[in-house]
Nucleic acid binder design. Structure first.
Length: 726
DNA sequence: CTGACGAACTTTTTT
DNA sequence: AGTTCGTCAG
């Protein structure tokens, strides 16, 4: 057996983890230490060397992206199809189990998965039907409460009455929500996990089957697991101790959504015969960056303890820039990016990382005006767009008529004369008789008493849905989607909407049909005899909710990457700008007076710093306009935690945007030599190409005289003019 | 049922 | 500041 390809390329710690005997393993993998690599090689080791059948390997991740990458890398390493392996997200795997065992999980076969916006709508409607004032009971807060309970494995019936009014009311809402979801066959994200846990817990035979089946269970990003996910893992590995988890307590940044960093500590208690391996050699960043990051994170208490090191050199120090205001900050960053690109760097190797999405705007504007291609992460994804959700709602209704969320969504989209009044009546019947809106609508029609106009409109809607169902029988998936999109008149609706984005919406709907055509049942489904009876449409719909849009098609362009620190986790860039590093922003105001949350912010800082491979710039503004208010934030406390020897302050000489009185020379400042030489050919956004005739002043006051081909001789301020060296 | 206006918000996000 | 959301009038 040739094992060299699997273990040769690994360092000692990695190899120890990969080849460890079957026992509970906790691999503490620092940033850039080859975490995924260890997982991939561990799995390969089991298959190739230990002869574990591929279908009895389970690997759980948090994102689809991570799952996809792992699958791909295993295929590459072993040169086999990774099809039979169970690799997926917690939610994806829970969903798979629930589909297979819908009956035992007490779910209808056609249950549908709701995303969080669906969930919010359902809760809003529920509050309205309970006559609760939204001002007093914000739907968002209720959603948060319900999800938090589910993440802890708590059902409404488990919550003891403490006599507290507020709590009693929330439990009432929670219970009503559970009932509504059950009646509608709707499952939210948290429910997927909770149900999957209950499925195993309450069905001995099912549990035994999967315990038997999975000979090795692997978990990625273990520090991000919540209570119910960990409980599920424990059930699955109970008595077999065949669990291999990889994580980094220093990179736990999702505590606010239920992740329990404590699971790492509990793991060691629950699996007494476990082994811990630390991966501390970093293959990503320079020494300066790592040493600085180590110092910052060392300020947190109760860490497992880990210190990253590298064999490569110290590299250059971290550059710190104190901007006058947020404009100046953006200007500085974009200028640095421009010179990076001028020096032959790729834009896609550059990332601007910020704490909150609102900060992206100023950078976008500057990038836009300098004509620098960029891409902002986050925002609406394909399957979250309104027009797509409308189309999906029609499809869902054809599959499951009692899906209230979908019913409500499209009953009057496009408008067909079913107004608030009719809808109210339907809702009342539904609530009084505890039936779905669909059933209630039929009841309303048969009991009569409606105006002819409203009655006809409602009848037409019910007929439309039934007809969509019968008309699509036997069609290919994409034909179904196409037919529904057309017959529902959604296309027509958006075609009329010439005003803003109607055209784009039509295109998106066409893209949806295309997505259905490309939808590969096998790729989503772990091929298995049990799965044969699953409806392809249901799979497609569930996939839309669970994988809202890995449509990163425009990756081909060479773009500067803009994203929050959270979404940067797991990525790396040669040149990183960590911006807005100010008290109140980062750490965020809401976190400063809570030790636990502050530590999470610090971990976020650690994550951000360790994204950088070669160059790390940290910037803050001395004045910032935020939420329409001018503020004068102090530099972040995290900056003080970086030892001076790893950091050097960048000082442009007297900046134009800075009043002269504020200019104070600081120690350790770097002067920037002019980028231009006499006779050099340059190009300007507006004036086109020209040749440098004269230079004057320096730093931000540097002026330049250029003879432009088209507009003649001009004097420009270098720091203001957008010049490219040719 | 649309459009307009005013109020009330704005950490982080995957599934 | 900028967006989103809900209410009101037409």
């Amino acid at each position: 057996m040739d094992v060299t390809s699997i273990i040769d390329s690994l360092n000692d710690a990695q190899r120890a983890a990969v080849t460890a005997p079957s026992q509970p393993m906790l691999v503490l993998a620092g940033a850039g230490s080859g975490k995924t690599r260890v997982l991939v090689h561990r799995i390969a080791w089991q298959i190739q060397v230990l002869g574990v059948p591929a279908h009895s390997i389970l690997a759980v991740t948090f994102t689809n992206k991570a799952a996809k990458e792992m699958r791909g890398r295993i295929e590459e390493l072993l040169n086999i199809s990774a099809q039979p392996l169970w690799i997926g997200t917690f939610h994806g795997i829970a969903h798979r189990l629930l589909r297979r065992h819908a009956k035992q999980a007490k779910l209808p076969e056609t249950f549908q998965v709701m995303d969080s916006s669906d969930q919010l709508r359902v809760i809003k409607r529920l509050l309205a039907s309970l006559n609760l004032d939204e001002a007093k009971w914000p739907a968002k807060q209720m959603l948060w409460y319900i999800n938090a309970q589910k993440d802890e494995g708590v059902r409404a019936r488990h919550i003891a009455d403490s006599g507290d009014m507020l709590q009693r009311q929330m439990v009432t809402i929670y219970r009503a929500y559970e009932e509504l979801c059950d009646r509608s066959g709707l499952v939210d994200f948290a429910e997927l996990l909770l149900r999957a846990h209950e499925l195993l817990r309450d069905n001995e035979d099912v549990l035994a089957f999967y315990q038997q089946r999975f000979r090795q269970v692997h978990v990625d990003e273990f520090q991000d697991t919540n209570t119910i996910q960990y409980a599920w893992l424990r059930l699955l590995t109970q008595g077999k101790d065949n669990i291999f988890v990889v994580g980094d307590d220093d990179q736990s940044i999702y505590g606010w959504r239920g992740a329990k960093i404590e699971n790492i500590y509990s793991f060691q208690k629950h699996y007494p015969n476990h082994q811990v391996i630390k991966l501390e050699q970093n293959y990503r960043s320079t020494g300066n960056i790592l040493k600085a990051a180590n110092k910052v994170i060392a300020n947190n208490d109760g860490r497992m303890g880990k210190e990253l090191w590298t064999e490569s050199g110290d590299g250059e120090p971290i550059a710190l820039y104190a901007a006058f205001n947020e404009q100046d900050e953006a200007h500085f960053v974009v200028e640095r990016i421009r010179s990076w690109v001028n020096d032959g760097g790729m834009r896609s190797d550059v990332a601007i990382l910020y704490r909150s999405n609102a900060q992206s705007r100023q950078f976008e504007e500057k990038l836009m005006t300098t004509g620098t291609p960029y891409r902002v992460y986050g925002g609406l994804r394909f399957f979250e767009r309104a027009e797509i959700k409308n189309a999906l709602a029609y499809l869902r209704l054809t599959s499951n008529r009692h899906d209230d969320a979908s019913f409500e969504r499209v009953i009057n989209t496009p408008t067909r004369g079913i107004g608030a009044k009719t809808l109210d009546e339907i809702r009342n019947i539904a609530r009084d008789r505890a039936v779905s809106l669909w059933t209630a609508a039929i009841a309303l029609l048969t009991q009569g008493g409606m105006s002819a106009r409203a009655g006809n409109a409602l009848d037409a809607f019910l007929i439309l849905i039934k007809q969509l169902d019968t008309d699509t029988v036997g069609l290919e998936l994409f034909e179904k989607v196409q037919l529904v999109v057309e017959k529902s008149q959604l296309i027509e609706l958006y075609k009329k909407d010439k005003a803003d984005k109607g055209e784009e919406k039509v295109e998106n709907l066409e893209e949806l049909v295309n997505a259905a055509r490309l939808f590969d049942k096998a790729s989503v489904q772990m091929v298995d005899e049990n799965d044969a009876n699953l409806s392809e449409l249901d799979m497609f719909l569930a996939n839309a909710a669970l994988e809202a849009g890995d449509m990163q098609g425009d990756d081909f362009d060479d773009c500067v990457q803009l994203m929050t620190l959270h979404s940067a986790k797991g990525l790396e860039f040669k040149l990183v700008f960590l911006v807005g590093v100010e008290e109140g922003l980062f750490p965020s105001q809401q976190s400063v007076d809570d030790v636990g949350r502050l530590e999470e912010e610090r971990r976020l800082c650690y994550v951000g710093m360790t994204r950088a491979m070669q160059h790390l710039y940290i910037t803050y503004a001395e004045s910032r306009r935020l939420y329409g208010r001018e503020s004068y934030p102090r530099p972040s406390r995290f900056l003080r935690e970086i030892p001076a020897e790893h950091m050097q302050e960048v000082r442009l000489r007297a900046s134009v945007s800075r009043p002269a009185t504020v200019v104070k020379p600081r120690s350790g400042s770097i002067q920037m030599p002019s980028r231009y030489k006499l006779g050099q050919r340059v190009s300007h956004v507006k004036f086109g190409e020209g040749v440098v005739l004269q230079l004057e002043g320096e730093g931000a006051q540097e002026r330049i005289q250029i003879n432009f081909k088209q507009v003649g001789i001009k004097w420009l301020i270098v720091s203001m003019a957008q010049l490219d060296v040719l």
